[in-house]
Design a protein around this nucleic acid. Structure first.
Lengths: 348, 348
DNA sequence: TTTGGCACTCGGAAGGGTAGAGTGCTAATT
DNA sequence: AATTAGCACTCTACCCTTCCGAGTGCCAAA
C-alpha cells in the first residue's frame, strides 16, 4: 500500500476530521482545516483516487468522504502517531486503579471500570489464563455428609473453590486423608499437566475402597479443570448509546444484543490474542468487518495483555465505534495496562 | 377509591388495550373491542371522570387516554386477575431452571436469565441475605508468609472466601492453631452475632502474642463481615431497547445508565423488600413515580422473595416498562420463584 | 342517566420547494 | 504531467404548508 506523501496526508486528515466531527469530510472543509498548499480540486482528485483504492467511501453522491475499514486500517498501521497522555489524565487513571484491594477479580473490575470511563466506550477484562499456573494448595473440606468443598490456591494467589458431591459414607477423617495426599503430590504442578491419572495415582496408597475414592477423585478433577475457565467482565455498555454512531435504535439494539452474549466476546478476544501470541505487539486492533461477529460491524476492538507473575497473563481491552480516536484510546489502554500490571505485581 | 362497576371495567379495558397496543385508547376503539352495552358518549363521560380522579391521562387533546401511575396502581391492586401460565410456558421455565448445578450463584444466574427471557424485560436476582445464617466452618489457610485465605462455609451451603494480609512472622502452624480455635467457638453462630469481641475471646488462650493475634483477628473479622454483602445480578438490559416505550434514544440511554449502577438497584430492592417484610404478599409492585430512582420513571419493579432453608432468603424480580402485562409477568415471576425455591431446596 | 350530534383540536403523514455542500469533468494553466 | 478554476449536476436535510382523521367536550333531546 504505497501511498504518495500527499495522499497519506489526505487520508490522515480525513480520518482525523471524521473522527472529531462525525461528518463526512469534503474537499473544501479539508482545505480550510489543514494547511494543504494545493487547491480543493487537487484534493478532489486525490480523494477519488483513494476511493478507487478502497480507502475511502461515500455515504452518498453529494456528501464528503468517510474512511472505509481499509482506510482505518492503513491509518492505524502507518499513519497515526500514538499520543502520550497528559499528566492529568495519567494521574486520574493512576488514582482510580491503585487501591488497597488484594483480590484479582476486584482489581480487574476496577481496571475495567476505569477503562470504560476514560475511553467512554465498552471495556472488557478477561480473567487470567491459568492453565500454566500451578497449584500451591488444594484442600478438600467436608461440609456435610455427601458434600465437600474443594479449595484451590494457585500460584499468583488466585483462589478457586467448588462444592462437589461425594459418597455419603465418607467421613471427615477420610476426606482429610484424601485431601492431604492429593495436595502433597499435586502442589507445584501446572494445571495443564493434571490429569485423572496423576490424580488417581496420588492416592493409590490409601486404604479407602476404590469405588468411593474414584468418585471423589473425579469430582476433584472436574473442580480443578473448571478452575481455568475464563470469565469476562464487560463494563459500560450503556455508554455506547451516547455515541452518534449508534443513534439509530436498531444499531444500538443489535450491538447491545451481541454484547450480552459475553461468552462470545470472550471467545473472540481469546482467539485473536492467541493467534497473535507470537507477535509481541503491545496491542491488537481489529476494525469493523475484520471482526467476525454479527452486530459488531461498526465497532473496533482494541485489546492488550496484562501480566501476572511470570507465566500468567490475561487480556483487557475496549470495544468502541470504529470511528474512534485510535491514538488516544491506544495510549489510554496502554497506560491502564501498565498500572494494572503494577497493581497485580503487588499481590505476589 | 370506590369506582362504580362500569368505571372499573372501563379502566380495566383501557389498561388492557393500552398494554397490548401501545396506542392511547379512545372511546370508539373501546366500544369496538369490548362488549359495553352503552354508547361511546357514555364512555367518554366515564373517561372524563376517571381522568378527573387522576387515573387516566391524555398525551394531548385529541388523542385517547392512557393510564396514569395511579391508574396502573388501581389496576394492579383491585382490577386485574392473575393469569395462570399455560402448560407449555410452565414446562419451558421448568426445563430452563432445573439443572444439575449445585452452586447458589449459578442457580441464581440461571433463574435470572430465564426470567429475563420469558418476560422480555430486565431481570434481577440478589444474593441471599446471609446475616441470619450461621457459620458451619471457618478455615484460615496460610498461602505464603504474610498472606492467608479465610474460607467460610455458611449454613445452606454458601461458601465465601477472602485473601487477607497477616503478619509475616506467623507460621503455618500458628495460623492453623488460630483457625481451629476460631472455628471451634464460632461455628453455629449467626453472622449477625459475630463481633470483634466474640472473635477475640475465641483465641484468648493462645500463646501467640496479642499484637500478632489482633491483626489476624481483625482481618478475619472483616472477611466475615464482608461475607454478607449483597450482590445483584442484572440480566437482559438490551431487551429494553426493543420496547416501544424506549424507542426514544434519550430515554433508553437514561434507563441503561441508571441500571448500570447496580448497587443502586440492589439498594432499592433491598429497601422495599425490607419495608414489606411483615406483609406476606407473594410479590411487590412499584410503579413509575413510586420508584424513587431517577431514570426509572417509566418503569415498574416487580419483586418477590425466594427461600433458602429456613431463615435465609433473597429477592428476584424484574424491571420493565410500566406499560406491561402485569398479570402475566406476575404469574411468570411467581412460577420462577417457585421453581427456584425447589432448586435451592435440593442443595440442602 | 344516557345518547346522538356537532364543532373543535391537534398530531402526523404527505407533498413541494429550497439551500447548501459536495462531486466529477473539462478546459486552461503551470 | 500535474494542478487549477469553473461549472453543471446531484442529493440530502430542512422547512413550510396542507390535509386527514381520530378523538374530545359539550349541549340538547330522549
Amino acid at each position: 500500500m504505497a501511498l504518495d506523501e500527499r495522499k497519506s496526508l489526505v487520508l490522515q486528515a480525513i480520518v482525523d476530521d471524521y473522527v472529531s466531527t462525525y461528518e463526512p469530510v469534503g474537499s473544501k472543509a479539508l482545505i480550510e482545516r489543514h494547511n494543504f498548499s494545493v487547491s480543493s480540486a487537487t484534493l478532489r482528485n486525490d480523494m477519488a483516487e483513494l476511493e478507487r483504492m478502497g480507502l475511502l467511501e461515500k455515504p452518498h453522491t453529494s456528501a464528503g468522504r468517510i474512511p472505509s475499514d481499509k482506510g482505518y486500517r492503513e491509518y492505524v498501521n502507518s499513519l497515526m502517531r500514538v499520543d502520550v497522555l497528559t499528566e492529568a489524565e495519567q494521574r486520574d487513571i493512576e488514582s482510580r486503579i491503585s487501591s488497597s484491594v488484594n483480590d484479582v477479580k476486584d482489581i480487574l473490575r476496577n481496571a475495567t471500570a476505569t477503562l470504560s470511563e476514560t475511553t467512554g466506550f465498552v471495556s472488557l477484562a478477561m480473567t487470567p489464563r491459568l492453565n500454566s499456573s500451578y497449584l500451591t494448595q488444594l484442600k478438600i473440606l467436608m461440609i456435610e455428609p455427601g458434600k465437600a468443598l474443594v479449595v484451590m490456591v494457585l500460584s499468583a494467589g488466585v483462589v478457586k473453590d467448588k462444592i462437589v458431591r461425594i459418597p455419603n459414607f465418607l467421613t471427615g477423617e477420610q476426606i482429610r486423608e484424601i485431601s492431604n495426599s492429593v495436595e502433597k503430590s499435586l502442589s507445584g504442578m501446572p494445571l495443564d499437566e493434571i490429569t485423572m491419572i496423576t490424580l488417581a495415582s496420588s492416592v493409590k496408597e490409601s486404604e479407602i475402597p476404590d469405588s468411593l475414592l474414584n468418585q471423589v477423585i473425579y469430582e476433584a478433577y472436574t473442580a480443578i479443570k473448571q478452575a481455568d475457565k475464563l470469565d469476562v467482565y464487560l463494563e459500560g455498555e450503556h455508554r455506547m448509546l451516547s455515541l452518534p454512531d449508534f443513534s439509530e435504535l436498531g444499531r444500538a439494539r443489535d450491538l447491545l444484543g451481541t454484547l450480552s452474549h459475553d461468552g462470545m466476546v470472550a471467545g473472540y478476544v481469546n482467539e485473536i490474542e492467541k493467534a497473535a501470541a507470537d507477535k509481541k505487539d503491545a496491542y491488537m486492533v481489529r476494525i469493523g468487518q475484520e471482526i467476525a461477529i454479527e452486530g459488531l460491524e461498526d465497532c473496533s476492538f482494541i485489546t492488550t495483555t496484562y501480566q501476572m507473575g511470570d507465566m500468567i497473563s490475561g487480556n483487557i481491552g475496549i470495544i468502541g465505534p470504529k470511528r474512534m480516536d485510535y491514538s488516544k484510546v491506544i495510549s489510554q489502554i496502554n497506560f491502564v495496562r501498565h498500572k494494572l500490571n503494577d497493581e497485580l505485581k503487588k499481590l505476589t
